[in-house]
Design a protein around this nucleic acid. Structure first.
Length: 656
RNA sequence: GCGGGUGUAGCUCAGUGGUAGAGCACUUCCUUGCCAAGGAAGAUGUCGCGCGUUCGAAUCGCGUCACCCGCUCCA
């Protein structure tokens, strides 16, 4: 492992440790040995999450005129997951190709004939060349190693003596003489590294009848190369096994298929007490579908017009194969999703006479009536970027624009907002332009209309000539024909769609910024974490840990400290200040230990401000300092004197 | 799912078959006039869990759970 990788693991471990020690994040059910892939937020973590949640909710809904909130249930009619495609894609038993991990439906494998070769593992030929010291100057042909017992011995035994003897014999045969003492020593010396260089993994490959062993070996070599074995020598039999009408191999790759397994990542449960198949439903794997399912209700009950959005924050559940990287990929997590509904570009064109083209540097500050999906998509990327800047993540963001290969067939564009974590640069949020895929899918499945009626569109369309209308239709038909993914819409359907459009009715299109709250919390913690080494007067080294959290997200906003706790006047005044502030923000009162230690404790959990009540606050140095306190900044350590009566006015704008 | 590693006090870890430890943290008291100060006392563990071997297990074996790393997965 590289030094960088080790450092980042160490960094992550420090963050995990701090999170537990100071009450940000605990392992779920820890006293019972834990529970895989789920985490609990402690007192400070709960505050942190709450602050992030509020920041999102305020920015995305309350501070906007065009976005409404929703709080849907986690359990829903399972038909929703059928319509969204979540059930269909994964409900069947799937078998996975052991070579490529491509999946096929277990009941859809074509029977095949051929010859199957099983390879037991591989060792790097480059490794052997690098170990020339063992072999002296003699060139050993790859086959001299691969086709000897030695290769198989490596795989079949753990016994070091046996492996050692096999190795010596192989080299002896390869160079055609006995080894001298010095050479034998060298072999023994290299044995541990040799054992590590062997990759033991059994794979079976089917080649069509008549094809030579070499074609199977070639596939095996490619496989081991992908796994990181440089110039692999594969261990395998000279003669394969004849196979007839077998359904155990992937039709395209020839790789052996694993056991049939259900690949549904949705958590299944039973709604109702009888627990029969008829009662099966799922814990939602994403919050978005509820927004689509309730789209019409929100639209009808809120006097809104397209474009408008529906935002939601809530728990979602996925049965991840491998939960990983602390809270980054967990089985229960919280999403913050906006579905922003817009007019189809054709409607924009009819109303505004054009669709604003996007170009680098376009003005995204205020939405315009002539924006099509592209401008709206860029707009939301811009809005979300500003949001992340507002919580202190501005300088660690990266963007990945999905290529047409990455995109799902219904998506027009998707950008991932990524963030640097100690374990790598990973996705925080995805912003997708999904067309009308979701609403249309639910409209079809539910047979309830999810169209909106647009008076403005109807009026504008009425003014179009037949030629203008036909030109719009032809333009769309050309676009459908040029599609590289998914089937083009048939002409009759296109014409029917335009007929509805010209009457003012359409299914809105959607831009979907979808963020993970837990990931955001982890990103904020990882970004804020810092350690510096300090040497005190006695030469003792100390590690000083500080969380440089943005004041908006910090779980505790202010620490309130009497300089000394054995002076009742200081304590009384400090309690007064604490009582004043805590009604408006999360504060922490601390009178134990030295003042420096109390500062340090708060630095470690990211409290941005510290207030100390000293003797000046009591007016000892003169009446002008009476009822003033020192306000300390976490990041600079600087202090200023502030009147108690000015504290709220000064702090509130900084922390909210 | 496969392979490797780890699991002992709140945290970091030492402890290779014979009375469970250290540093830091924590609680109380004393002391302390601004950046992890000092002193005194105290509390804290079924050594992840289960089964086995043994006169005796944190230590050895088997199983299991969780976490970490590498593959894989991430619609």
């Amino acid at each position: 492992m590289s030094t960088d990788a080790k450092n980042s693991i160490a960094q992550m471990e420090k963050i995990v440790s701090l999170c537990k020690r100071r009450g940000f994040i605990y392992q779920s059910s820890e006293i019972y040995g834990g529970c895989g892939g789920v985490w609990d937020y402690g007192p400070l973590g709960a505050e942190l999450k709450r602050n992030l949640r509020s920041a999102w909710w305020n920015t995305m809904t309350r501070e906007r005129e065009d976005v409404l909130g929703l709080d849907a249930s986690i359990l829903m009619n399972p038909a929703i997951w059928k319509a969204s495609g979540h059930v269909d894609t994964f409900a069947d038993l799937m078998r996975e190709c052991s070579l490529t991990n491509k999946r096929v439906r277990a009941d859809h494998v074509e029977p095949q004939d051929g010859v199957a070769y099983t390879f037991e593992g591989a060792i790097s030929w480059t490794f052997f060349l690098n170990q020339r010291g063992i072999l002296g100057d003699t060139e050993l042909a790859p086959d001299a190693i691969a086709n000897t017992n030695f290769a198989m011995i490596f795989h079949h035994t753990q016994d070091e003596d046996e492996i050692y003897n096999g190795l010596v014999n192989t080299i002896k045969n390869g160079i055609g003489r006995d080894l001298d003492d010095e050479e034998i020593k060298t072999v023994a010396h290299h044995l541990p590294a040799m054992l590590k260089a062997v990759m033991k993994r059994s794979i079976t490959i089917l080649v069509p009848p008549g094809k030579p062993r070499e074609s199977a070996e070639k596939i095996a070599k490619e496989y081991f190369e992908r796994l990181g074995v440089d110039k692999p020598l594969v261990f395998g039999p000279k003669v394969g096994v004849k196979v007839e009408r077998s359904v155990d191999f992937h039709p395209e790759t020839g790789g052996a298929l694993g056991d049939a397994r259900p690949f549904n990542l949705m958590l299944k449960t039973y709604l109702g007490p009888t627990a029969t198949e008829a009662d099966v439903t799922y814990l939602r794997p994403e919050t978005a579908q509820a927004i689509f399912a309730q789209f019409k209700n929100v639209f009808d009950s809120s006097r809104v017009k397209v474009p408008f959005g529906i935002g939601q924050i809530g728990k979602a559940f996925r049965n991840e194969v491998t939960p990983k990287n602390f809270t980054f990929r967990s089985r229960e997590f919280e999403q913050m999703e906006l579905e922003f509904f817009i007019k189809p570009d054709e409607a924009v064109e009819i109303i505004s006479g054009e669709v604003a083209p996007w170009s680098e540097g376009a003005d995204l500050s205020e939405p315009k009536p002539n924006w099509g999906w592209q401008m709206w998509h860029r707009y939301w990327v811009d809005q979300r970027t500003k949001f992340y800047q507002g919580i202190g993540l501005g300088d660690v963001l990266q963007y990945y624009w999905q290529t047409s290969d990455d995109l799902a067939h219904y998506a027009r564009a998707c950008v991932d907002i990524l963030c640097e974590f100690p374990f790598g640069t990973e996705e925080l949020e995805g912003i997708a332009a999904r067309g009308d895929f979701d609403l249309s899918a639910h409209q079809n499945a539910s047979t309830k209309s999810l169209e909106v009626f647009d008076e403005e569109l109807k009026t504008a369309a009425a003014k179009l000539t037949d030629e203008q209308k036909e030109a719009l239709i032809q333009k769309r038909l050309a676009a459908e024909a040029a599609k590289t993914k998914g089937a083009p819409m048939p002409e009759s359907a296109v014409r029917a769609w335009f007929e509805r459009l010209f009457k003012g009715s359409y299914v809105p299109h959607v831009i979907e910024p979808s963020a993970g709250l837990d990931r955001m919390a982890l990103a904020v913690l990882a970004k804020a974490f810092s350690e510096t080494e300090k040497v005190d007067e006695k030469g003792k080294k100390e590690i000083i840990t500080v969380l440089h959290l943005h004041p908006r997200v910090a779980p505790i906003k202010v620490g309130v400290f009497p300089l000394l706790k054995n002076k009742p006047e200081l304590v009384a005044k400090a309690r007064e200040v604490y009582a004043l502030l805590k009604k408006h923000m999360n504060c922490f009162y601390d009178e134990t230990a030295s003042i420096g230690r109390r500062y340090a404790r708060q630095d470690e959990v990211g409290t941005p401000f510290g207030i100390t009540i000293d003797f000046d606050s009591l007016g000892e140095k003169g009446p002008e300092l009476l009822d003033t306190v020192t306000l300390r900044q976490r990041d600079s350590g600087e202090q200023e004197r502030v009147k108690i009566s000015d504290l709220l006015g000064k702090l509130l704008p900084l922390v909210s």
